[in-house]
Design a protein around this nucleic acid. Sequence first.
DNA 1: GCCACTGTTAGCAT
DNA 2: CATGCTAACAGTGG
Length: 271
Amino acid sequence: MPELPEVETIAVGLRRRAVGLRIDEIRLLWPKLLRGAAADLRRLRGKRILDIRRRGKMLLVSCEGDLHLLFHLKMTGQFHWTERAVPTDKHTRLRIAFRGGGPELRFRDVRKFGVLRILATPRPLEAAPLRALGPEPLAVSGPEIARLLARRKGRLKSLLLNQAFLAGIGNIYADEILHAAGLHPLRTSSSLTTSEARRLASSVAKILNAAVEAGGSSIRDYKDADGVDGSFQSRHRVYGRKGEPCLRCGAPVERRVIGGRSSFFCPKCQK
DNA sequence: GCCACTGTTAGCAT
DNA sequence: CATGCTAACAGTGG
């Protein structure tokens, strides 16, 4: 479930290790991973990786020649480094080998929801899938978030999950943010007082910063690109804690489906 | 063995 | 603009 903190952790780890490497060969083991022409993949051969960064939940690998690999990890996508000679397992969807030998970078994705696009443009952030994203929650000020909130309506839970509102928040962090803000997931943005909007904005930054610092949350099978678990799962205060006491007021945490997504919240201290 | 559930997003209907 | 449903997929747990 890579959300912003997990993708950020992966991006930092990959950047450290992959920038400067020259791509030798990209092999697509699961053709449907790539949206677009397979011929585009071959254009990457011989290109050097210049930068790797995150935007929302997407990972952008920028190479020479204004060519970019744009990954969305969806539910179960993960990267890892492996010696070329090691056989791939059945969930490996892509392998990228580099000039000069050394380990190759592999993309695994058990549920095959992951998506890869090739962007050929000097300004990838303005290209189709990235253009539609809202601002980065950690790059935008509290008052700005409050202002964005005032322009929207609808339930807070759905709004936080809306990537066009803020980019990168998923189900886990949406629930944790709302709990930290003491706001009920069914509250609407138009019902917020100024101080509630401010509380929500600061909770967005507080939770996401803490999660990035902890290397993300490793529930199920998330690991970063170096195979390391995150630790933020031990600090979840509502997510996955149905029936357990709220860590603020002691009332049992409730689970309810909101907008088709399981939502955990404290019915007593989230108003 | 069956079914519910898992979390993300596109696409479609309302 | 908002919401709700489904499909895409595979594994886990009851």
